[in-house]
């Protein structure tokens, strides 16, 4: 049983990464109502921007991170303005938007590969002295702790934004019914555009998204405790199928 604290730690680390990505994905899915396959590449653009500014140009890490967030947000906003917005305006189906987002994914991936090659790039030299901590028998590093911290902060800020601001109420309204939101005077294009910027930062249900992220991470890490590691993928997608069959409305009802 000595292994359990470390498995919990591993699950929390993986869950935090999934949760950070889930927040943005959920937000765009909730408002724009399509599966944005290009979303993953935005996180990658953020990472490569930090690599470019902080590692290649030597700017401080905090500035590189700020530029990374801005650039990935901007790319996401441009993709919305020039690709998804016109398609949505002509009432294209979800399938068309999905294929368009697949195009965005492939094209941006190719651009990144041209600019930075397909080789592994690493920021580890910028993080010298990555301290190792131990808590209740689980070992984790300073970077892993910061991932967890960032996840908590992002979730708290987003939950506050959605619940207590006018912008949040507009987002909630659009995710419920975009047509009615338009009728009551919400500038839906502007709000959805902002969402794309933030998601390069849903409100399907952000609480459900976060719960799902951690459920997945715990299932993956505890699932291979007693069986071989190559079962990880089978466990993940088995869980997905079970949810689609028995709980299609998600973990929490909206």
């Amino acid at each position: 049983m000595d292994i359990v604290p470390q498995l919990i730690t591993n699950s929390l680390i993986a869950g935090s990464i999934y949760a950070i990505l889930t927040l943005g994905f959920n937000l765009t899915y909730g408002t724009a109502k399509f599966i944005d396959m290009g979303y993953g590449v935005l996180a990658v653009i953020g990472g490569y921007s930090v690599f470019y500014f902080s590692k290649l140009l030597g700017l401080p890490l905090w500035l590189g991170a700020l530029l990374g967030i801005t650039i990935s947000g901007l790319v996401s906003y441009l993709a919305y303005t020039f690709i998804y917005k016109p398609l949505r305006a002509r009432k294209s189906s979800g399938a068309v938007l999905l294929i368009a987002s697949l195009g965005v994914l492939t094209a941006l991936q190719a651009v990144i590969a041209i600019l930075f090659t397909s080789q592994f790039q690493t920021l580890s030299s910028l993080l010298s002295g990555n301290r190792i901590f131990e808590l209740f028998g689980g070992t984790f590093t300073a970077v892993q702790l910061s991932i967890f911290g960032i996840g908590v902060v992002l979730f708290t800020v987003l939950a506050f934004l959605l619940k207590y601001t006018l912008f949040g109420k507009a987002v909630t309204a659009i995710s419920d019914d975009e047509e009615v939101s338009k009728i009551v005077g919400i500038n839906t294009d502007r709000i959805v555009g902002c969402i794309f910027f933030i998601s390069g930062g849903g409100i399907g249900n952000i609480y459900g998204g976060i719960a799902g992220a951690f459920l997945l991470a715990f299932a993956e890490n505890f699932g291979i405790w007693k069986i071989a590691g190559e079962w990880k993928g089978a466990i993940t997608f088995g869980l997905l199928i079970m949810f689609l069959l028995w709980r299609p409305q998600g973990i929490f009802k909206r």
Binding site: N10, A14, N221, I224, G229
Partner: peptide, 17 residues
Amino acid sequence: DEMTPLDVLDFRTNLTK
């Protein structure tokens, strides 16, 4: 004895075992 899929980069649980 831990065999891992080709496309993963999180080996923490395999290494924990």
